[in-house]
């Protein structure tokens, strides 16, 4: 058990180091950081002096080591454009993205899994067919189009929901939340649905096909032959086995919900890190870009780690070693 976790954590470190290297190389290879810091008028001596004081003349490995050690201490430098600490910009923006992503993930799981189970158990019912054909829309329509359609119907036509922004937020310490005000909640509805729709249909189809697969296995047949109730067979036996592979995929999907939030945040002008990243690209704000890269990578790594551990708890074949003695 310990060795399994240790191995996974070590692997995560390697992944994070690689991402850090890419992130670091942005500084070195995308434009000259000095040119972004000083005015056009500055003399060459002044530039050289600044270069020296920032340590840009040191060997690349030394600079990389310094970059990593700063990143560990949550120091990501100063934004070129906003002239503020990147860490505080992110801290300000992150709650918006996390609230949106987590709500979307809950929506996707909360509707996707039950719908998947239902359509697998009642394969021939008209409702299953309806849900399945409906899910095709979710898979095939691009996210931005769904967002724009929602805005058109509910904001432009019926004036029910705000078309952009987070509404009123309440500051709880460092965390700003939109969940406590009516306008904040209203503003959350459409972006959350937009972001969740694709994942929801994906999870539903995955659960359905896995469950159909499991329902065909011998141990389900044997369980029925022993006269176990449908509830035990479906939920005690089939569902657990369905979830084993589903957990992996779902974990990866949650990571991509956070990453995909870029598009949704752009469409709804949602003041989260995704929108911040798009703006940073427009303005070639390298510190912000590289920090965003590190942030998303660390989300993926953490989620993956969690998924692996979950897997470990759900599946006894990983947890309990094979017994050699007979």
């Amino acid at each position: 058990m310990i060795s399994f976790i240790l191995a996974r954590v070590l692997q995560s470190f390697v992944v994070m180091l690689c991402v850090a290297a890419i992130s670091f190389s942005l500084f070195t290879y995308v434009g000259d950081p000095i040119a972004n810091l000083v005015g056009i008028q500055s003399s060459d001596e002044k530039r050289e002096e600044l270069r020296e004081s920032l340590g840009l003349n040191d060997a690349v490995p030394v600079q990389f080591a310094r970059f990593v050690s700063r990143a560990v201490r949550m120091e990501f430098g100063i934004s070129y454009q906003q002239k503020r600490k990147v860490s505080s910009i992110i801290a300000e923006r992150l709650p918006a993205t996390l609230e949106l992503s987590i709500l979307s993930a809950l929506l996707a799981l909360g509707i996707g899994i039950p719908a998947g189970i239902y359509t697998a158990l009642h394969r021939e019912s008209w409702f299953s067919h309806l849900v399945l054909s409906g899910s095709l829309i979710g898979v095939s329509l691009p996210t931005f189009l769904i967002g724009i359609l929602l805005i058109f119907v509910f904001s432009v036509q019926f004036h029910l929901l705000p078309s952009f922004g987070r509404g009123e937020v309440v500051q709880l310490g460092f965390w700003s939340t939109g969940l406590l005000t009516e306008s904040g909640l209203k503003a959350l509805i459409m972006p959350a649905i937009t972001l969740a729709l694709f994942q929801m249909t994906l999870i539903m189809r995955l659960v359905r096909s896995e469950m159909l697969e499991v329902l065909r296995t011998d141990y389900i047949k044997f369980a029925r032959a022993r006269g176990l109730s449908n509830r035990t067979v479906h939920f005690g036996y089939a569902l657990m086995n369905t979830l084993v592979p589903v957990i992996t995929i779902t974990g990866l999907q949650l990571g991509s919900i956070i990453a995909f939030a870029i598009i949704t945040e752009t469409v709804f002008q949602w003041p989260g890190v995704g929108l911040m990243f798009i703006q940073a690209i427009n303005e070639v704000d390298i510190p912000v870009m590289s920090t965003y890269l590190l942030l998303i990578a660390s989300f993926f790594v953490i989620i993956n780690l969690t998924v692996d551990l979950l897997y470990y708890f759900v599946d006894p074949r990983l947890r309990v070693g094979r017994d050699v003695k007979t």
Binding site: F222, A225, R226, G227, M240, D315, P316
Partner: peptide
Amino acid sequence: RRIRGRHIGAIFQDPLTSLNPLH
């Protein structure tokens, strides 16, 4: 269902796949 298992039991071919791996 009350007859299956109670009055008529069944055994299938493959013992490797006849048992639920998670319980």
